[in-house]
Amino acid sequence: MNVFRFAGDMTHLISILVLLLKIYTTKSCSGISLKTQELYAVVFVTRYLDLVTDFISVYNTVMKVVFISSSLAIVWCIRRHKVVRRSYDKELDTFRHWLLVGACAVLALVVHEKFSFQEVCWAFSIYLEAVAILPQLVLLQRSGNVDNLTGQYVFFLGAYRAFYILNWIYRYYSEQHFTRWISCVSGIVQTALYADFFYYYFISWKNNSKLQLPA
């Protein structure tokens, strides 16, 4: 565990806490894409199948359980919570996310390291995570104004990916550890998707103004 990897995991955790904080304090999920949250729930459940087959560390197990349970809880809140669900921007959140699931499933069946159930699921989860933010970015762009907590949520998610890339570079030089190329390529694609958002986030931060995305 190096400082970049730890920073990546922590910013990932912070992003989820920020999202839960927003939902809990405002009792609202406006600006949050249910589609993206559903994709993350699918990502974590399919990636962490090794929870039952391999033990890596207490840290690893705890984080996996936290990611699976928090993503399911968030989906439940947006769909079922009697107050929260009223603020869901259903008409803005129309991204056809099951197409992404289908495309990633096909890709995982074709491109994987080993043809086993767990390995194909793992590759699928990596591909799906790379594009899971798309419905959220589309929703933000459509709604124009982004509230602070939602902006911070997306910012921390993007920071998590950027730290993971630094972690891979660090591991390559310090441990001669080669990150799987499936992870590398997907991770770079995933981080690149945030480039536009980061640009406007920093401008609003510099000008001390509200985050607005161009239509």
Binding site: I56, M63, K114, F178, S183
Partner: peptide
Amino acid sequence: SSSSELKDEL
């Protein structure tokens, strides 16, 4: 690294 190597990243 082989594909049977443990995946230690999240």
